[in-house]
């Protein structure tokens, strides 16, 4: 249940709230694809991660290699191979920063809809059959914020897009997408990650996550895909992945909105 507006149609850009001024195209007559929620100006400022990047954390860099930070992670015997890899949709540039601030901190939950299509596409493309798991919030933070941003992103993996995709699914006879499972719980209430320095994040040893006791579900030899908003140092995702791997998960990957 997430809507950008309670009116039938909105013609303004979802982020800058200016009129979109789109020229009519074939899509207007034959709406196979949902109309874009952003105006051209905002859309163009979002920079997708394309081209060479780190094989593990998808940090953009000149060559397709494992980056220094990931080498450091992999050299730790405790954490080696804990997170198979992370894929991020966008670079964490100015507009992304503003969008995430408005979305998470000002509480504009519906802004997530901008990314719905691309999250779903990325998921179908690379992770069919993986069980989507959102990164949880502590109950205190959840009440404070009113929603869990990772949950919203995880829900998008389960939402077929338009007529076009439904038709594709039918013809390909692909297996249905496994339901989102909120397998993890955050039992320790911490300061916001964004308020800590890199060093503080890496030094925080204890793991705030636990496997939820509400599920009688065997994690053993299954594939999981974690969803979160930003990959900054990768600490959060690795801590969450560790809990799943400890209980025998076969592979844990991550989809994040932005690579910080």
């Amino acid at each position: 249940m997430l809507k950008a507006s309670i009116a039938d149609s909105g013609s303004d850009c979802m982020f800058c709230q200016e009129p979109k001024n789109e020229l009519p195209s074939w899509g207007t007559l034959l709406p196979l694809f949902p109309p874009s929620l952003l105006c051209n100006n905002c859309e163009n400022q979002l920079k997708a991660i394309a081209g060479p990047s780190c094989a593990i954390c998808s940090r953009p860099q000149p060559v397709n290699e494992v980056c220094e930070d990931c080498k450091r992670w992999e050299s730790d015997p405790d954490l080696q191979g804990i997170l198979d890899h992370n894929r991020s949709l966008y670079r964490y540039n100015n507009i992304m920063q503003e969008m995430i601030a408005q979305w998470k901190y000002r509480g504009d939950a519906a802004l997530a809809l901008i990314f719905r299509e691309n999250i779903r596409k990325l998921y179908l493309h690379h992770y069919t059959g993986y069980i989507p798991v959102p990164i949880p919030l502590s109950s205190k933070r959840l009440i404070e914020r009113g929603f869990n941003q990772s949950q919203l992103l995880a829900d998008f993996t389960n939402e077929p897009l338009a007529f076009y995709e439904k038709w594709q699914l039918l013809t390909r006879k692909s297996s249905p997408v496994p339901a989102v499972l909120p397998l993890l719980e955050r039992t320790i209430h911490e300061e916001k990650q964004s308020k800590k320095s890199r060093r503080e994040r890496l030094l925080a040893k204890e793991n705030p996550f636990q496997l939820s006791s509400a599920f009688k579900f065997s994690v053993n030899s299954k594939n999981f895909i974690l969803l979160d908003d930003i990959y900054t140092t990768g600490t959060t995702l690795r801590k969450a992945a560790k809990r799943l791997k400890e209980h025998g998960a076969k592979s844990v990957c991550a989809i994040t909105l932005a690579r910080g």
């Binding site: 950008a4 507006s5 309670i6 519906a110 009440i143 009113g146």
Partner: peptide, 21 residues
């Protein structure tokens, strides 16, 4: 303006919550 109100499922009131954007 109805176009400027969003809807999300709110953890505070456990309902669909309409908010001013």
């Amino acid at each position: 303006d109805p176009a400027r109100f969003g809807l999300f499922s709110c953890a505070r009131c456990q309902k669909g919550c309409i908010y001013c954007r």
